[in-house]
Design a protein around this nucleic acid. Structure first.
Length: 463
RNA sequence: GGCUGAGUGGCAGAGGGGUCAUGCAGCGGUUUGCAAAACCGUCUACCUCGGUUCGACUCCGGGCUCAGCCUCCA
């Protein structure tokens, strides 16, 4: 039984899709005005693993992750760069896709963009106005009237009074709004800003409406899973619920999944704190799979501290799994083991990847042991299971030898040079010239190459 | 101030009322010409004060500390 922690109910609940064997999952993606940072990588990877696991369970999953390609920051950045906002967003969408590929992500089934869905957005705003959940202020902005929606605050567990109190000292009172908590659905364009025609004047959509409109358009009024970062819980997801449920009169998403943050020095990594590392920056020193492994070492809802030390540790731990796979022939995975059982039990428990990884390490130890006992066939079938389970997490799919002989920077001695030195050392060893042999090994070690003697051959890897 | 969530060994990070997490690092051993890798063994734990219990790090309550949201944010 697959259990998922549902933010809406604050409980782990058995996952029951609306339609048997079908899952519709919508995740809030990126606003594309800059490179993605490691915090974004967390969402990408968290939901990639959820997606993979659901697929593995035999669900037909439609996974939509939107792209916000119009908003204030995009407009501002485009002005700063003196470029068309389309060019700007396309550049960062391409960069995002490249980053995703490095991290080994499966592409979502669809990536709806706000600017491609203006008609659906206009339709929803119109319905909200018709149903009197929205109004146009004197400044031309169209607002959602929060007081009209009964369930406002149900996701983030907030009361309107508390919110108003908090809003009082923080938000400059906007006289065009009936209530400081009302939020923008449509914003008139200023001179020279990108805009679309609408019954309320040329303008652009507010941030929250695009997700409501696109998810409802793609999936219907009610769908299975809605996800995103923890910080989107309020106000973004709260507002989505208000918009969608007011519009359709039906329950919106059944399961709300929110991932925890990446932290730096015990603080949330974010643009405004300027304490972020971009994915591509980190990829210069660590491979995508190492970053992915690092993310998997904590449960997706927990905060995760980013540090060089932890990435190094992750890199070594991952290498350990690859070492277990090394030198094993292709084989059918062994079935009905405690390892697989434990792995799946962990994943069934709200995608507990650290526990699932623990099972993989125990399995790798077993594999090594059998391998050492010269039972290559049994070792191979255990290794095949390791690889199979790894695939569910998106790891261990590289050729082990190639993985261990590579690194992120692809710098250092070439394989040819290394092989030649190894041969030279083997000759020295054959002549029992230990001084010479050890010198070659030490020199290579200085350059980050480790040698391992296996019987008559010597294999190598980069540290 | 309101609302969430968290405090585990040197570091990271699971877990469950009473026997092992796991990884990295350390230490001892097997193996090796010596190493490395692997395997075996091993040392460091459960913020604090009460309560429930035969027994709590695990459940309940108070306190302390930290993080997040309440403003754009994955």
């Amino acid at each position: 039984m697959l259990e998922i922690y549902n933010t809406l109910t604050h409980k782990k609940e058995e996952f029951k899709p609306i339609e048997a064997k079908k899952v519709r999952m919508y995740v809030c993606g990126m606003t594309v005005y800059d490179y993605c940072h490691i915090g974004h990588a967390r969402v990408m990877i968290a939901f990639d693993v959820i997606y993979r696991y659901l697929l593995h369970k035999g669900f037909h999953v439609t996974y939509a992750r939107n792209i916000t390609d119009i908003d204030d920051k995009i407009i501002q950045r485009a002005i700063e760069n003196n470029e068309d906002f389309h060019d700007l967003t396309q550049r960062f969408i391409d960069a995002m896709h490249a980053d995703e590929e490095s991290l080994g992500l499966l592409r979502p089934s669809m990536e709806p963009r706000a600017t491609d869905n203006i008609p659906a957005i206009l339709k929803m705003i119109q319905t909200l106005i018709d149903k009197e959940y929205a109004y146009q202020g004197e400044n031309g902005d169209v607002y959602y009237d929060v007081s009209k929606f009964k369930g406002y605050g149900k996701l983030s567990r907030r009361k309107l009074e508390d919110l108003r109190q908090g809003a009082g000292d923080r938000i400059a009172i906007d006289t065009a709004k009936h209530d400081p908590l009302d939020f923008v659905l449509w914003k008139p364009a200023k001179e020279g800003e990108p805009s679309w025609d609408s019954p309320w004047g040329a303008g652009r959509p507010g941030w929250h409406i695009e997700c409501s409109a696109m998810s409802t358009e793609l999936f219907g009024a009610t769908f299975d899973i809605h996800g995103g970062g923890k910080d989107l819980q309020f106000p973004h997801h709260e507002n989505e619920i208000a918009q969608s449920e007011a519009c359709t009169g039906q329950h919106f998403a059944n399961y709300w999944i929110h991932n925890g943050f990446i932290r730096v020095d015990n603080e949330k990594m974010s643009k405004s704190l300027n304490n972020f590392f971009t994915i591509r920056e980190v990829l210069k020193k660590y491979r995508g799979e190492e970053i992915r492994y690092f993310m998997l070492t904590s449960q997706y809802r927990s905060p995760l501290n980013y540090s060089e030390e932890q990435l190094k540790s992750a890199s070594k731990a991952l290498a350990r799994l690859y070492v277990a796979l090394r030198g094993l022939p292709e084989a059918e995975a062994i079935e009905k083991t405690n390892y697989a059982f434990r792995f799946h039990s962990a994943m069934h428990d709200d995608f507990n990847t650290p526990e699932a990884l623990a099972a993989l390490f125990d399995l790798s130890r077993k594999t090594n042991k059998i391998h050492q006992q010269q039972d290559k066939e049994a070792a191979a079938s255990h290794g095949a299971l390791l690889k199979q389970l790894g695939a569910i997490l998106g790891i261990l799919q590289h050729d082990p030898e190639q993985w261990l002989q590579g690194n992120a920077s692809e710098e250092g001695l070439s394989a040819d040079v290394i092989e030649a030195l190894i041969q030279k050392r083997l000759d020295a060893k054959a002549n029992k010239n230990w001084m010479e042999a050890d010198k070659i090994r030490d020199d290579l070690s200085q350059q980050g190459i480790s040698l391992e003697d296996k019987g008559t051959e010597t294999i190598w890897r980069r540290d």
